[in-house]
């Protein structure tokens, strides 16, 4: 079962939790399902491996990618293009905002608070339990509280992105799903979906996962990876 989410979706989480890879793949899946999709890269904190690097494949599929002027694309500056506020005021069927990591990364959302509070937004926390600081329920709850305080918005749902890149096994995905299920129980928040690489999807037992699964095709890989 693929994720079927509409509206304004903000993807947040700790550094390296896989926010950007999740955001671009969610954009791709939504577009393939025939929806109108807009995505913006709000990562003003980290200059590498950002969703803007997937601009071309997404644009080729017909996803509208909203980014700062190309001459500032590699600038080490917190540029928030005014097009982002326009995008929230005039959302597509699926409008994805890929935020930066940790509390620092979502601070930018506070700058958009005026437009955001007029819209109904989903703020989803991406969790990869194989990352430092979110390897247990307590760590995930702490990260959630930090994100909410900085963004001035409540987290509304969870995404489990358990992976060790190419070394991911089905067991890693099951274990991650179990952990995020416990976070879900502790918070009352829904698990919107989990992720799994397209390579692993056929090996997963659908009986064991009670939520949608977003297939991941790695779009933000280092330059030596060739498949």
């Amino acid at each position: 079962m693929l994720p079927d989410i509409s509206g304004i979706i903000i993807i947040a989480g700790n550094y390296g939790s896989g926010k950007s890879e999740t955001a671009v793949n969610l954009a791709a899946v939504s577009r393939r399902a025939g929806k109108r999709v807009k995505i913006t890269d709000l990562d003003l904190v980290n200059p590498y491996f950002r969703s803007r690097e997937a601009q071309k494949p997404l644009a080729d599929m017909g996803v509208e990618v909203v980014l700062p002027d190309s001459k500032y694309m590699q600038a080490d500056l917190p540029i928030l293009t005014s097009a982002v506020a326009d995008m929230i005021k005039n959302p597509a069927q699926v409008t994805i905002l890929d935020a930066g990591g940790d509390d620092a990364g979502v601070t930018v959302l506070a700058a958009l608070a005026d437009v955001l509070k007029k819209s109904h937004v989903k703020l989803l926390q991406v969790i990869n339990p194989l990352r430092p600081f979110t390897n247990d329920v307590q760590g995930c709850l702490k990260m959630k509280a930090q994100i909410e305080a900085a963004a001035k918005l409540p987290v509304t749902g969870l995404i489990c992105n358990a992976n060790l890149l190419d070394e991911t096994t089905p067991q890693i995905i099951y274990d991650g799903y179990n952990l995020v299920t416990r976070v879900s129980e502790a918070t009352g928040l829904n698990i919107e979906f989990i992720t799994a690489s397209t390579r692993l999807l056929p090996q997963l037992d659908p009986e064991r996962i009670l939520c949608p699964i977003l297939p991941i095709d790695r779009l933000l890989a280092p330059p030596w990876i060739r498949t």
Partner: peptide, 13 residues
């Protein structure tokens, strides 16, 4: 067990 880390974090650890 293995963890997934950024080079910078891994150097710190």
């Amino acid at each position: 067990a293995k963890v997934l880390m950024k080079g910078n974090e891994a150097i710190g650890e």
